[in-house]
Design a protein around this nucleic acid. Structure first.
Length: 315
RNA sequence: AAUUAUGGAAUUA
């Protein structure tokens, strides 16, 4: 059974859920008795593939083996329901777990908070955050990040910043994920100076920026039309040994395209291929749109025709 | 003491 767990876990991580399901059914047909742990691996795998109905069915089928879903099973399901916008059902999973006598932990609270916050119910998420603290459940960096991200996505950046400072007061050490989250919030609001302040702060505190950090910074500047700074940051990220990915290039191609600097956009397109970063459907869409708007319709059509040979199907 | 693959947070058209 231990080997099954390791195998299924790695398949789920690689998003090979169909193969995992096949092997799981072999396990069910064998003399080995699956436990809650191995069910959790599968439930989570289905959730990650957005197959929430199957995940729920699998959870329900545990009863036949006299297994009970635990806090982890419920948290996975809650998260999955929320991600597909089924907020009420997600909430009722939280209620149910409490009714069954489980004490929600920081992960269960954060899952619920995240679902509410991303589902446009930020004030409700705030309430949950406060409830959690009252229940002596200490919010960690991920809990703060989720809340800060939700506030930021609503444009409530000063509140987001308040909670960032609050996390430090309460003894949390912001990590690269938290810094990146808040940098994104400020960037999207056009407050690029605040985003830069955070970038400097994290380096003072020896928290290393990663590709997402740079992507968020670059995106903020690009969206504000400050493509020259975006370009500088791109160079800086390469100097710091942080590799640009397809998202980095997409941001730059879109940014330069939107301000009509088509040659620069095209040069990033060349550069990415040179560096082995494979363009995706977003890359092509941005560049085609920019070429079209610049009146280079022929070039746009030609680019469209190369998509298939570059292994990218138009959507 | 730490580690030893089940759940929660961040980026692009």
């Amino acid at each position: 059974l231990g080997n099954f767990k390791i195998l299924l876990g790695s398949l789920v991580k690689d998003e090979k859920i169909d193969l995992a399901l096949k092997i799981f059914s072999e396990l069910q047909g064998s003399s080995l008795v699956p436990d809650t742990f191995v069910y959790n691996v599968m439930v989570n795998g289905l959730v990650k593939s957005n197959r929430i109905d199957e995940a729920c069915k699998l959870m329900d089928s545990m009863k036949q083996l006299n297994l009970s879903p635990d806090l982890i099973t419920y948290s996975s399901i809650l998260d999955g329901l929320g991600k597909v916008g089924r907020l009420e059902e997600a909430f009722s999973v939280f209620t149910k777990l409490a009714e069954e006598g489980y004490e929600p932990d920081v992960v269960a609270y954060t899952s619920l908070m995240d679902v509410l916050g991303k589902g446009g119910k930020v004030n409700h998420a705030l309430t949950i955050f406060r409830t959690m603290a009252k229940k002596k459940c200490v919010p960690d960096v991920v809990a703060y990040s989720s809340l800060i991200d939700s506030l930021g996505k609503e444009g409530r950046v000063e509140e987001a910043y308040y909670f960032f400072e609050d996390s430090k007061r309460k003894g949390c050490t912001p990590n690269v994920g938290l810094y990146s989250t808040l940098i994104d919030s400020f960037g999207k609001k056009g407050m690029v100076d605040r985003a830069l302040d955070l970038y400097e702060e994290m380096q003072r505190k020896e928290c290393l920026p990663n590709t997402v950090t740079f992507n968020n910074l670059i995106s903020g500047f690009a969206k504000a039309g400050k493509v020259n700074v975006a370009e500088k940051l791109f160079e800086e990220m390469e100097h710091k040994g942080c590799f640009p990915d397809v998202v980095t290039y997409n941001i730059l191609i879109d940014g330069f395209g939107k301000v009509g600097m088509i040659e620069e956009a095209e040069s990033y397109f060349k550069d990415m291929k040179l560096k082995g970063v494979v363009p995706d459907v977003i890359t092509f869409t941005s560049l085609i749109e920019s070429l079209g708007k610049a009146g280079k319709v022929m070039n746009a059509c030609e680019l469209f025709d190369t998509m298939e040979e570059e292994g990218c199907s138009p959507n």
